[in-house]
């Protein structure tokens, strides 16, 4: 029996796992002039959702499904060519691990924390967290897919002083696409690690490296 309220706790933007300091690539996109308004934000989010979003949602679903988290961590590395983004994923994974072990302690989380003391990829940790919270793989996929768009939306509100109602409306309009991606991710996770998607976004990989080298920035990534 899955508990819907646990999903709300985990997916809450106020869940203390460090996400608030990350723009999901929106900061460099704003600086480059690619995001200037709500429509640009929607396009950016849709592209990120169908690429990075699908890939990380499937990793989370697979971890929630019970696939070997260390093998998934390796699969996540192979799907993350940017060293800046690998570092971010592990840092956020370590931060999430701290919050997860305080909220839903489980032997599987402890084992992963000990095997990857510098942090495992965040979606893998999230999948295990969902499992520990009694959630389903599809819940983990939904949660991660939503993070891939809610992060940029929140960041753009701060970066552009975009109307927060508009930004939230963008997220609401993405709901059908979010459902579709989460279902696709959960379905892939049922077929084992070799069936996991690897959808990638070349521009996000490139701009993440550029952003990591900025001397002054508002967001960590």
């Amino acid at each position: 029996m899955t508990t819907r309220a646990a999903l709300l706790v985990l997916a809450d933007g106020r869940f203390p796992a460090g996400g608030h300091a990350h723009s999901g690539g929106a900061e460099p996109a704003v600086k480059a002039g690619h995001i200037r308004n709500a429509q640009d934000l929607a396009d950016f989010c849709l592209g990120r959702l169908h690429t990075t979003g699908l890939t990380v949602a499937a990793l989370a679903a697979a971890a929630a499904h019970g696939l070997d988290p260390l093998a998934l961590d390796e699969a996540a590395d192979a799907r993350t060519p940017s060293p800046a983004l690998r570092a971010v994923a592990r840092k956020l994974g370590r931060q999430l691990m701290r919050a997860a072990r305080a909220t839903w302690p489980s032997p599987a989380l402890t084992a992963l924390a000990e095997a990857r003391p510098r942090g495992a990829h965040q979606p893998v940790v999230l999948g295990l967290t969902a499992r520990a919270a009694g959630l389903e793989p599809a819940d983990a996929a939904h949660c991660v897919a939503y993070e891939t768009v809610s992060g940029p939306a929140t960041a753009v509100v701060r970066l552009l002083s975009l109307d927060p109602f508009e930004a939230t409306a963008v997220l609401a309009r993405l709901a059908p696409a979010l459902d579709e991606v989460a279902e696709q991710a959960a379905e892939a996770a049922r077929h084992g690690i070799d069936a996991l998607p690897a959808a990638s976004a070349p521009l996000l990989d490139i701009t993440a490296e550029a952003h990591a080298a900025w001397p002054v920035r508002l967001f960590a990534s």
């Binding site: 480059a32 690619h34 995001i35 950016f44 990120r48 990075t52 799907r79 998607p197 990638s200 521009l203």
Partner: peptide
């Protein structure tokens, strides 16, 4: 062991947003 795994999808019928700021940013050669 997996070293690199990438999947790119573009064009009509590809998932939305492929031409925009997150993925190609309007470029035509990748």
């Amino acid at each position: 062991r997996p070293l690199l795994d990438q999947h790119l999808a573009y064009g009509p019928g590809a998932p939305g947003g492929w031409d925009r700021a997150a993925v190609l940013g309007g470029h035509r050669a990748v």
